[in-house]
Design a binder for these strands. Structure first.
Lengths: 326, 326
DNA sequence: GTAATTTATGTAAGCGCTTTCATTTGGGTT
DNA sequence: AACCCAAATGAAAGCGCTTACATAAATTAC
């Protein structure tokens, strides 16, 4: 920058202004400075800029997993949307480990970002402290519940589980089961399982079988199906915590000669692309993935542009996509 | 930090040392300082630290897409591995747009990261300039080719395409086709298509049909299948640029009553989890996804620990996974 | 033409750390 | 006890910018 200032024959301050707030500098100087800095290939040092200025153009976003297509999709969307406004995403991933989340949140906060976005509502005490003592807007996304730390944008997983149960009950299903991936770690899937259990029990007086799969991949869907059938042979409908598990179960059903939905009804969750393409096409529950990404970006941008904008706590709801497996 | 220094009754320098290089400070002072900073909840300001020190603990990684499970997997792996060494990933995503890549690279470079990792070998002139003028190690991953900018770790997509063609030719296939997603933008898929075309033509004197799909999702696999069959009805084998497309085609084949591999042979690419679970199970080509992530991390860490470590240019090769669709 | 504004530029004080260099302290040696 | 050397600590100089604040230049008002 010093170089640019010298060549352009102006002071450091003027260069900074020409680059940062072009309207504050006279047109002729501005063009000269821009020309010189381009010619010299000057690239401002963000770090210095951020130290001197108040904030970084960084938005910290923390998700449990990058390979989960929901979060990947939300992140991709947010990246693009924020980038257009000059913000840069700092992405963290903790693999459903709240201690790791704690460390990541602390690390992110130490860059004093413009905003912090975390996934879910379950955090350690320290995470909560770091989050609430950071000066920026904080949004907890994907889960809806009472009293978010600052803003909350998501939907109720419990309600999603209940929706599935109600749907099964309405179809006159007597014995149902729920298959969830890593129910011990993924509290969102656990909330769906619990909502399902409660509502199905309430509606039919039957306590549904809950089975935990070790991951969210297809193979596990197949083996979970076998386990369900082993433990509760008369099961006529299974709700899965993810479409991939459901599809895996469909493949397995195909192999063991079970017809769907005749012998067994299957309900997915996620409405991934694959759900529209299987034979038969998968009936599933769609979380508001795109709406979440958009709402988060919109809200954060609003807060950043008008700091007195109040926090929000949005429930975006889920939707049952009726296709052919139930 | 000033606060901590005052309370502990030492100078700023000592606090900094106690936290940064504990072995340089006497045990009793060290424990006192650590205790005080914990009690005060002191969180160092990374930005100031980086400005004063030489480098940030940031590693910039730029991929075309976050929703592509390869990149997502590599990123997840790299995040975990680097995190263990105290580095933090800065993830960028450009959607196969080299101009966007240019902007992202520039933005990342301005944080002067410890290393920069980009995907592929196709970059704009400016990207190349920024990359080579940045003081840190640069690795181009996923593609192998001559003379990387600095280090290169990947495999040859062209060779992967040739492998598919050779395999088909050996099976005695007369009329083959290749279906690739967004061949106009994804130069890796294009390289595979081109390798396939060249080798199949060379081996059988038959110019295979090349069809472009609009995205890498299942639905497109189905419609691409219809297009292939429309344009070249006698096609007996199709290679796809991705497993999802291949699976989509399998679903469609099922719908139109085509038996696989009897009527039509299908070869995927990626060896995603789903490939092991379809009926029949998908024969596919597996790129060295995990090996790439590991090799990148290992190499970068080496370079960072011993700056005189030479660059590398690794070809990790691909593997044909023989299953039931060919 | 001068005074009062407004606008454009320059000066210099940090931002919160790290690190060099100088100084002090605490053991060993003789 | 005097001396030397290594280890521990402190003082202070930046790191490369931004931004009050001060100053100069250009307008406008009278």
């Amino acid at each position: 920058m010093e170089e640019v200032a010298k060549v352009a024959g102006v002071s450091l301050a003027t260069v900074s202004r020409a680059l940062r707030t072009p309207e504050a500098v006279s047109p002729k100087l501005r063009t000269r400075i821009e020309e010189v800095s381009r010619r010299l290939g000057y690239a401002p040092n963000r770090i210095a800029g951020s130290l001197a200025g108040a904030r970084t153009p960084l938005i910290g976003v923390i998700v449990p997993s990058l390979t989960n297509s929901f979060f990947a999709g939300t992140l991709e969307q947010m990246t693009t949307l924020f980038e257009a406004k000059g913000y840069q995403l700092m992405i963290g991933q903790h693999g459903y480990d709240t201690d790791r989340e704690e460390r990541i949140v602390a690390a992110f906060a130490s860059w004093n970002p413009s905003a912090l976005v975390v996934t879910g509502r379950a955090h350690t005490r320290n995470t909560l402290n770091t989050l609430s003592s950071s000066a920026c807007p904080v949004v907890e996304m994907w889960d809806h519940g009472e009293r978010p730390l600052d803003s909350g944008i998501g939907f109720s997983n419990r309600a999603a589980g209940k929706l599935a149960a109600r749907f099964f009950a309405e179809q006159g299903i007597a014995k149902a089961a729920f298959v969830g991936a890593i129910l011990d770690k993924d509290d969102r899937a656990r909330a769906r399982a619990e909502g399902f259990r409660q509502e199905f029990l309430h509606l039919t007086r039957f306590e549904p079988l809950i089975v935990t799969a070790n991951n969210r991949e297809l193979g596990e869907g197949g083996s979970a199906l076998k386990r369900v059938l082993g433990q509760q042979p008369e099961t006529s409908a299974i709700a899965f915590s993810g479409d991939m598990l459901a599809v895996g179960a469909m493949f397995e059903a195909d192999r063991i000669g079970l017809s769907i939905p005749g012998d067994l009804k299957i309900l997915g969750y996620g409405d991934l692309d694959i759900a529209r393409n299987t034979n038969p096409r998968l009936t599933t529950i769609r979380p508001p993935h795109n709406a979440i990404g958009e709402a988060v970006v919109r809200h954060v941008l609003e807060r950043l542009e008008a700091p007195d904008t109040p926090s929000v706590n949005l429930d975006l709801g889920v939707k049952l996509i009726l296709r052919e497996t139930v």
